[in-house]
Design a protein around this nucleic acid. Structure first.
Lengths: 323, 323
DNA sequence: ACTTATCATTCTAATTTTTAGAACGGAATA
DNA sequence: TATTCCGTTCTAAAAATTAGAATGATAAGT
């Protein structure tokens, strides 16, 4: 949004000065280092002065560069003010919304979404209610929520699913774990390791039980909990395997503390994540925009997670090499 | 210079609001109307609001557009301040310079050049001295001038010609004049019309006399003057033909009040226009930059004049159809 | 001392963005 | 009614940006 307003070169300069090196900025911005380098050199040629001091350890901003830096920050504020003013004109800037969503998203999409919302629509008040998918659907109908972000909301007769994405199930483990380097893990491989399983009150467990009953038939997993946070903690310690979707472990996957590998032998049916509203209800005007932003951020997070998996270039380990 | 700083879309928006129509802005910016249109539409999609009201007669800025407009103007000032500050750091912003040049440039390149200089280097004081090319050379040597912009400065042993461009001679007439629509005019055609000729004290006349003596041999032209302004005035009235280079009549050609057609049967030798300095002299640090800007602006003006000649798409009139 | 890692930078090729130019329909002008 | 000027759309061309591999230089680790 409004990315057209400030030249990329200036954003690069800002990020390089923040990170102290082009390489780090490159990783942060997801733009190749050569591209960033080029833009900065071009700017330096423009004014015939250096914007950074080059040290073998990285780049340090020069006084001239600081002038640029001030400019960028001022302009970024200008842009955000501009946005607020324009949205104000459209009468879109205020409103009170209730969002029904799930526990598993509280440190994944939600912070991102809320941050963006606060910056683009500072006057919008949003109330986040954590509940189960079924309760979310009910909340939409009853009017106690305006928007829902939850798993497996069927396109029911009176519900409008604005956006949805497939969410393959996978095994989530610490990077040290045997399964971390295996592509296309199968259930057979997983059962060889201790599983931190969700309790029956959670969607994923219900899903697994209905589609892969045998997983739990011979013996109960060593850990069963209704706390997703605990499941992730155990995976983080490297002792247990977790079965979840990417989005549940988003921050840990992005930080590299956990690894997600999709499961190969799962049927065509996988979970979906959806944003939905109840069209019969009269919503504040801002609702459509907010729902759109919510979907966008969820999609962006998914894309980011999936992109993250490329760099390491895992070697392919044949299944026979594993216990 | 620093064109990287402000996104083109914003500059387009500004110009469209100034001109009141995309077409006019297109001509002013020398950018296709479709490109401008596209950028504006993209910005409108960004904010989901109109920046201009569309009228059959053109575009009028909306309140939202005015917010953008304020932003551009503020940012343009920011950029120019930034430039001044950075140049100030380099100790390049001050200096006193003497420029030796010719009468014929006073309402062509010089205003452009001085305007740009004032905006980029507001603290530089420049003294413009009008003289003949020979005097200019002498002024460089004697130190009474730091930079010269003049015709036909030979690369002499002790003079450094920083930049030069060929300057073909041509006939300059009012757009109504018979010769206005003729490409590749020849001297034979020109002598059929009354000529407003420069007097022998001026370079061009001396050049013509040495290379095309016969032009003046049978009869003296109906008007002979040492005032280039008068020559142009007569051409403007449509009664006379003038023989000059493009740059002498630059503003009139650009405004469409005069037309320049190069002469076909002129020898390989044509005039040149040069910027030169006297390298033995110790110049203020700013001098190099100023000389460069001077050359750049002269070149830009020439390019602009030559580009200007395309749009009308003159039909080719055979010489036999003329008196 | 020697490897390893990180850094900026350059180069070439690929991609994305921007632009030009022709074509179209609508509204004003004459 | 014919003409002019307008904004917009479309396609291909041009220009700008980017990615990715390679290079050399320096710091850190062994």
């Amino acid at each position: 949004m409004l990315t057209r307003m400030i030249p990329r070169a200036l954003l690069y300069l800002d990020e390089v000065s923040r990170q102290g090196s082009i390489q780090k900025a490159s990783r942060e911005l997801r733009i190749s280092a050569s591209a960033i380098d080029r833009q900065i050199i071009l700017m330096e040629k423009d004014i015939d002065a250096l914007l950074f001091e080059r040290h073998p350890t990285g780049m340090r901003i020069t006084p001239a560069g600081e002038l640029y830096l001030d400019l960028v920050h001022r302009w970024q504020k200008d842009v955000s003010d501009l946005w607020v003013q324009i949205k104000g004109m459209q009468g879109l800037s205020v409103g009170h919304l209730k969002l029904a969503t799930m526990d598993s998203l509280v440190n994944g999409v939600l912070p991102r979404f809320l941050e963006r919302l606060a910056s683009e629509y500072p006057q919008v008040v949003v109330e986040v209610e954590i509940m189960s998918p079924d309760q979310a659907v009910e909340a939409l109908r009853s009017g106690s929520a305006d928007i829902a972000l939850a798993f497996n909301i069927e396109a029911q007769r009176d519900l409008h699913v604005i956006w949805n994405a497939k969410l393959p199930l996978g095994c989530v483990v610490s990077p040290d774990h045997d399964l971390a380097t295996v592509r296309d893990v199968s259930f057979k491989q997983i059962v060889a390791y201790p599983l931190a399983a969700q309790s029956r009150t959670l969607t994923i467990r219900r899903y697994l039980e209905s589609h892969h009953k045998w997983l739990f038939s011979d013996r109960e997993p060593p850990l069963v909990t209704n706390s997703l946070q605990l499941v992730k903690q155990m995976a983080l310690r490297g002792s247990h395997v977790a079965l979840t979707s990417e989005i549940d472990a988003a921050p840990e996957i992005l930080s590299g503390d956990l690894v997600f590998n999709p499961i190969s032998d799962i049927g065509a049916k996988s979970q979906t994540i959806c944003t939905a509203i109840y069209p019969h209800r009269v919503l504040p005007r801002i609702a459509g925009v907010v729902a759109h932003i919510l979907s966008e951020e969820t999609e962006a997070l998914l894309a980011q997670i999936r992109a993250e998996k490329m760099p390491p270039m895992l070697p392919h380990v044949p299944a026979s090499a594993l216990p």
